[in-house]
């Protein structure tokens, strides 16, 4: 059995969980095992998980606010009962605080930041990102299986698997946590940066925080989440949670639009795994152009407003 932690947030299945399920489905095919989705959060699955390869779905009631030790206990009890060889979860905030606890308790290996697998050599090999995205590493696992934490946005969810699933519910029956939560502050609105599929990011080339209106507008038109370079966050022009790069968040969206950012190596360390990079910069020598798929060399204060108008026109026509 392969156990997949499936998170439901605001009644929606998290995309990161669909990524974990997609890896599980691939592993199940290769090893001839079944996939069980263990659903936690504030609702029931918003999509048919059989479509993503789950054979069995268990929804855990009263599980929206579990602490990592309680979640670890729930996962380990389920894994032990089902004799699960693999536990797959996302390396999102939940995964980062829980994966190692589970591996230690189940006495299994842990591979985190996984972006794919293959079985070319007969046994499953898992690929993860290393050296700030400058290389990957392939790992094999012993016969006990492993805890695998998938990198957010590292795997494209694949539907259409057409499995018949059984659905049941259960109570969490949790141990008391050693952690007492006093408060929870959720960021409202947009998709969190780590999960965003399109990111519009801007840097010191913007000159002043009052100029960000055009960045927000472009981001709204593209359904994107906004990000920024470090000096911009340090200067308080933008909130710290938007800061991407070596010391900020590492992201790998499908599309990263970088506006007025030079592309210093420490910035690239957090974004160079994006599938497509579009750079707008007035300096033809800006290092970012070397990492880009598409580049526009010119003044952002002319290009971005024109682009916004053109995109709005295009959308209203189509």
């Amino acid at each position: 059995m392969i156990l997949v932690l499936t998170e439901i947030f605001h009644q929606q299945i998290k995309r990161t969980s669909l990524e974990s399920l997609t890896l599980a489905a691939q592993l199940a095919k290769a090893t001839g095992s079944k996939v069980k989705a263990l659903c936690i959060g504030d609702g029931t699955p918003s999509v048919d998980l059989g479509d993503y390869g789950a054979d069995e779905v268990v929804v855990i009631n009263d599980s929206a606010l579990l602490e990592n030790d309680q979640l670890c206990d729930l996962i380990c009890r389920t894994a032990t009962r089902d004799n699960a060889s693999y536990v797959i979860l996302s390396l999102n905030s939940t995964g980062k605080s829980t994966a190692g606890l589970v591996a230690a308790k189940l006495n299994k290996g842990l591979i985190s930041g996984v972006t794919g697998m293959n079985t070319d050599s007969g046994n499953p090999l898992f690929k993860k990102n290393v050296f700030s995205g400058k290389a990957s590493a392939w790992y094999s696992v012993d016969q006990h299986g492993a805890v695998v934490a998938t990198l957010p946005n590292g795997i494209s969810p694949v539907s259409g698997q057409g499995k018949q699933t059984s659905l049941s519910t259960s109570n969490s029956e949790c141990v008391t946590s050693k952690i007492k939560r006093l408060e929870r502050r959720l960021q409202a609105g947009k998709t969190p940066l780590a999960e965003a599929s399109v990111v519009v990011s801007a840097g010191r080339g913007m000159k002043d925080p009052s100029n960000w209106g055009m960045i927000e507008e472009l981001s709204d038109i593209l359904g994107a989440t906004t990000a920024c370079s470090r000096p911009v966050a340090d200067a308080g022009w933008r909130p710290h949670h938007e800061h991407v790069g070596q010391t900020g968040l590492a992201i790998r969206p499908n599309v990263y639009v970088a506006i007025g950012i030079s592309g210093a190596i420490q910035h690239l360390a957090g974004v160079n795994n994006s599938r497509k990079i579009i750079v707008i910069n007035k300096d033809p020598e800006a290092p970012f152009f070397k990492a880009a798929d598409y580049g526009v060399c010119g003044d952002l204060f002319e290009i971005v407003p024109k682009l916004n108008e053109a995109l709005k026109n295009f959308k209203s026509k189509s």
Partner: peptide, 13 residues
Amino acid sequence: DYNGSEVGSMLAG
């Protein structure tokens, strides 16, 4: 180098 966030939670475990 490995961007794992693995050691802390294992150690606590």
